[in-house]
Computed example of a mutant assay.
Amino acid sequence: MTIQKPQYTAHATARGKGRDGQVSSDDDSGLQLRLATPKSLGGQGDGQNPEQLFAMAYAGCFLTALQLAAGRMGKVKEARNAVVHANVHMGQATEMDDLGVAVDILVEGIADQALIDAGHEMCPYSRALKHGAVVNVSKA
Rank of each mutant, 00 (worst) to 15 (best):
Y8C: 02
A10H: 08
A10I: 05
A10P: 09
H11F: 01
H11R: 11
T13Y: 13
A14Q: 07
R15A: 08
G16S: 04
K17E: 15
G18P: 10
R19W: 03
R19A: 04
S24Y: 07
S24P: 03
S25E: 03
S25W: 02
D26C: 00
D26L: 03
D26P: 12
D27I: 03
D27A: 04
D28C: 06
G30E: 14
G30A: 05
L31D: 08
L31V: 07
Q32S: 12
Q32W: 07
L33Q: 10
L33R: 06
L35K: 00
L35N: 02
A36W: 04
A36P: 05
T37Q: 12
T37I: 01
T37P: 06
K39N: 10
S40R: 10
G42F: 01
G42S: 04
G43C: 00
G43Y: 01
Q44E: 15
Q44H: 13
D46K: 12
D46H: 09
Q48I: 12
N49Y: 06
E51R: 05
E51C: 03
Q52G: 02
F54R: 06
A55D: 14
M56L: 15
Y58K: 05
Y58D: 08
A59P: 06
G60S: 10
C61D: 12
F62G: 04
T64Q: 13
T64L: 12
A65H: 02
A65P: 07
L66C: 01
L66A: 00
L68Q: 15
A70E: 08
A70S: 02
G71I: 00
R72I: 02
R72T: 06
R72Q: 15
K75E: 09
K75I: 05
V76A: 11
K77T: 14
E78S: 14
R80F: 08
N81I: 01
A82W: 00
A82M: 02
V83Q: 15
V84H: 10
V84C: 09
N87M: 14
V88A: 07
V88L: 09
V88H: 10
V88G: 05
V88D: 13
H89G: 09
H89V: 08
T94H: 14
E95R: 11
M96S: 14
L99S: 13
V101W: 09
V103S: 05
V103L: 13
V103P: 10
D104M: 05
D104S: 05
L106R: 15
V107E: 09
V107P: 10
E108H: 12
G109K: 06
A111M: 12
Q113Y: 06
A114T: 14
I116C: 02
I116E: 07
D117V: 04
G119W: 10
H120L: 04
H120Q: 12
M122W: 08
M122Y: 08
C123M: 07
S126Y: 05
S126A: 04
R127N: 13
R127L: 04
R127V: 00
L129N: 12
L129Y: 09
L129S: 11
G132L: 08
A133R: 03
V134I: 13
